[in-house]
Structure formats: structure tokens, C-alpha cells
Design a protein around this nucleic acid. Structure first.
Lengths: 277, 277
DNA sequence: GACGTTCATTTCATGCATGAAATGAAACCT
DNA sequence: AGGTTTCATTTCATGCATGAAATGAACGTC
């Protein structure tokens, strides 16, 4: 798919057509005429190179490709509906910390050490696999897997992150497969072959499956080695090795509250790596 | 925000303008002329009723509203990039199970009872707070908080879900606040007042904070009462009471593999409610 | 201060996307 | 079989969105 060529508004109309099982209902819902919708759906199919609908006498029926797209688009719609719900702010300095699933979990465990009795900050922990843009202030503090290159950003290297499989026992064979966009998820997709797998859409559910003894989970060693109940059941996977960096915006280093928080976050992350050779 | 009036393609262009800090770079990136982008951004501001940019001599700078929108749009972008990565399917019947965070966690714990030695199915566990559309095949099996009304769907009531606060101790006072769209998240937003809070963008991180003794978490009682290390520290909140239903599409009941899986999922959910009065 | 560069906004000509109207297909009813 | 209804697609006229060109503003250099 060539994302640059896709008119996103065609996606909005696509959802309406899919939902209405044809052009007639979608025309009412969107205020666009049936001919326009017909053409826009053809445009979208052309741009994506996929057949999204079967045209039937009584209306439109989604193809498998169409269904896959519909799933994503409705997720996008749901995301859009939360745009204008900014949480209450109060007088504290909002410190947005962005980290992936595993670091978010760890930071929650150490939140007392980060916040403690500091009532000048309000922590918002943004757990996401996608990298948030610190220069655009999506996050104040970011935990990244590589050195920051962007001007205006400052980084402190925390340590190295390795991945291995973990399970309750060596004999557990199914793989818990996270179907996201991370390097480890892609590695899983490439190496799963005909292996028995259970798919999950959130990384945490891999750990849930591993702890339940149902599957092996591919985890960072700094996570898996600390998890009681699990053992390493593979060598580390070299191609997944990466660094861990704490990244902040240069401008934010002048705020005492943020500087304090950065130092505390760095300390708790260093502790995590200290117990790894 | 009037979602029906917003041209989604303006959102795509908005992200390019924000990323390029102005029209010039965005023009190169999108292939649209600077005048067009200028007008489209004005259109978007009109449609949303928000000022998204400050126009400066050297370019565009995001306002706070603009930043909030940018955060969401880049998330949408990331979601779009995964559209055409369908996971490998093999020969098994793909059984997509959709559940919220807490039920997903529980289902992972009981995955052996659901999958067992059944090698005719491939389970994909879709953990999402948004309700997926079974009639459009986003999910095969859904766990919902109300009876299904849509034609073609069949529901089995599992039990009742109540919410209460949980913590390691009665004296833990900060609230872990999930900033999503669920009824319980909205309740938290309405009642937080000037209370000390730590914000998280994923429900699981509320539990992480509670277990770490850093905050109180608002959890379903079927989750909190089973969690070692936590105790109830409030009465149940009546306005958050809801039902739990297992929902499937009528057509899918003819598939033996799916029927088996439905029965197993129902059984493990019943077990969960059996230990609640 | 004059000039050049880079940016955004406005004006103007025109191609393109749109909807009204016409057409075609399928299903249903009598 | 003929007529009606409901759907999608095609044709045609035209309004609107677009980009080229012009204009304005700010900044930097000499």
C-alpha cells in the first residue's frame, strides 16, 4: 500500500459504505452522493491496489482485504473520538513519560521512587510501542532504543537490551505472538513458520500466557530475568539487541521539576541494568 | 469536534505541516502546493473549532490543541502502517476473541483450557477497550457489557461486573487514572477533583501501580478480588455496574471449531463469576 | 539602507470532483 | 410476462479546489 497516495477521507467514506452495506445508506450518512461514493471507493481500491468490495445487486459486500481495512479504520475512528478529551491539569507540571510496554510496567513498579512526595508534578505514563516525538512535545521524557539524533534533544545511555524466550518450563512449545510493529514482533512473524502460536494484540498478554504456562514469550532479558515463575528457554537473539536511552528535550532541562524527574527515572532504569552483565 | 464535518485527508496533511514546522516542507512531502495546505489547515481549524497553529514568520508552530491532535494523528498513522501486514494464517480456523484489558488478562491465564490440544484453531486475542463489530467480523467472539441487540448475533449472559478501588493498603491515597474512554475511566475523570493522581494510558498500568503500592486502582471486582496483594479499599460503585455477555455471530455457530471455542470461553468466564456472590 | 532569501497568503485561471439526471441490472410482486 | 422498486454506474453540466503567479512580511547579509 502506498500510504502517500491514499486520500484519508476515502477511508472515512469506506467505513460508512462498509457499515451501510452499500452506497445508498452511506450516502445518507456522509452527505455525499452515491456516484461520488462509487468513484471514491474505486479510487481507494486503485490507490491500495486491493479489491475491497464485491459489488452485488443488493449492495456492497466486503472482501477479506476489505474486512482487514475496516478493522483498522474503525479503530482509527475510535481513536479520533477521544481527541478532545484532555485530562484535567491542575497546577502541577505535567510530565509525560513515553515508554514501551515493558518499561512502562517497570516504571509503574518504581513509581514511588519517581514521584515520591513530589507534589509539583503530575505524571502521565504513555505506554506505547510507537515512538513519540519529543521535539513536538508528545512526550517530555522518552525511553528509546537508540541515541537521539535530532537537534535539541539530549540523551543519556542507560544500558543494553537483549531479547530471549521465557516460559515456565523448557517443554512449553507454543509461541505467544504479538502482532504489532516492534522489531521483536517482526522477528516473531518471520520465524514462526508452522509453529503453534497464540496471537495477541498487546505485548502484556504474551507475559500473561507465559506465566500461565501456555506459551513461550519473547521478552527483554531485563524483564524476563526478573520475572518470578519464568526461566530463559533460549539463547539471546543477537539481531534484536539494542540500546536503551533516556531522552529529553533540551528546553525542558531548565525546569527543576522535570530535571528531578529525569534524574529519578534514569536512576531506576540504571538499577534495572545493574543486575545484568 | 464535529467528526462528520472533518475531512480526514486534512488530518494527514495536518501531520505533515506539523512535522515540517510549516507549509514549505509539507508541500514537498505531500505533493500539495503551499496555498492548498494553507487553506486546508484553515478548513480543519474551522471544522474542529480549534486554533491548531500559531502562524509565525518562519513557519507554523503547534498550539496546545494542535499538539493534542498531532499526538492522535501520529497514532493513527502508525495504525495505518500495519494495515497490510496480515499475520500468517496456515490451515487453522482463526478465532478472533475480543475483550477488554481485564478479560484479556484472565483469558490468557486460562488459555490452556480454551486452546488445550485443539490444533484446529488459531486464537487471536484482541485486547481493546473499543467495542469491535462482530457482525462485520472484526471479532468472532466478543465479551461485552450489555446484551447484543443486533440481528444475527447471539449472546449468553455470563454474569455481573462491579467496580471498586483496590490497593495494597487502606492508607494508599493517590489514584491511578486511566485516561481512556471506558465508563470507569470517565468516572475517574469526573471524580478525581484535586486528588493526587498518576496518569496512565493503559489500564494494566493501573494494576501495576496498585501492586507497587503507589496508587489505588479502580478495577472490576472479579479482577481485584482475585489479585493477591490487593484489598478492596472502597464500596462498589453502583453507577459502574454492568453485565457481562459472551457474543458470537449466528453464522459462526455452524463451525465446530468455533462452537467448541465459544463453549470453552464461556466456561472459563462462568468460573470467574462463580466465586462472586 | 538596499538587496536577496525564505516563508506564508492572496488573486486568478482552469481542471477536476461533484451531484443531478439518465441508464442499466436484479429482485420482487401481481 | 409486465410493472415497480431499489440498488449501482454512467453521462453531463458546473461549481469548487487547485496550482501558478503575484504579493506581502520578516530576516539576514553586505
Amino acid at each position: 500500500m502506498h500510504e502517500m497516495n491514499v486520500n484519508w477521507d476515502d477511508l472515512r467514506l469506506f467505513a460508512a459504505v462498509a457499515r451501510g452495506h452499500g452506497l445508498a445508506k452511506a450516502s445518507k450518512a456522509t452527505g455525499k452522493s452515491a456516484p461520488t461514493l462509487s468513484r471514491r471507493m474505486l479510487d481507494l481500491e486503485r490507490a491500495t491496489g486491493r479489491e475491497l468490495f464485491r459489488r452485488l445487486p443488493k449492495g456492497y459486500e466486503l472482501t477479506a482485504d476489505g474486512e482487514a481495512l475496516f478493522e483498522k479504520v474503525t479503530t482509527l475512528e475510535a481513536g479520533l473520538s477521544t481527541i478532545w478529551n484532555p485530562p484535567a491539569r491542575g497546577k502541577r507540571t505535567l510530565v509525560k513519560i513515553s515508554a514501551g510496554t515493558w518499561m512502562s510496567k517497570y516504571l509503574c513498579e518504581k513509581m514511588d521512587a519517581i514521584v515520591g512526595s513530589d507534589d509539583s508534578i503530575l505524571v502521565r505514563l504513555i505506554a506505547a510501542e510507537e515512538v513519540l516525538d519529543i521535539s513536538r512535545r508528545q512526550a517530555i521524557i522518552g525511553i528509546r532504543n537508540h541515541r537521539p539524533h535530532q537537534r535539541g534533544l539530549a540523551g543519556r545511555r542507560v544500558g543494553r537490551v537483549r531479547f530471549a524466550f521465557y516460559a515456565t518450563d523448557k517443554d512449553v512449545n507454543p509461541w505467544a505472538r504479538y502482532t504489532g510493529n516492534t522489531p521483536s514482533a517482526e522477528w516473531l512473524g518471520k520465524h514462526a513458520d508452522e509453529r503453534e502460536i497464540i496471537e495477541v494484540t498487546h505485548p502484556r498478554n504474551m507475559l500473561d500466557l507465559a506465566l500461565a504456562g501456555s506459551a513461550r514469550a519473547l521478552l527483554p532479558t531485563i524483564v524476563g530475568d526478573r520475572q518470578s515463575g519464568l526461566m530463559r528457554v533460549s539463547e539471546t537473539i543477537d539481531e534484536l539487541d539494542s540500546d536503551q536511552w533516556l531522552v529529553v528535550h533540551d528546553d525542558d532541562r531548565f525546569s527543576p521539576a522535570i530535571r528531578r524527574t529525569v534524574d529519578r527515572v534514569f536512576d531506576v532504569l540504571r538499577d534495572l541494568h545493574r543486575n545484568q552483565s
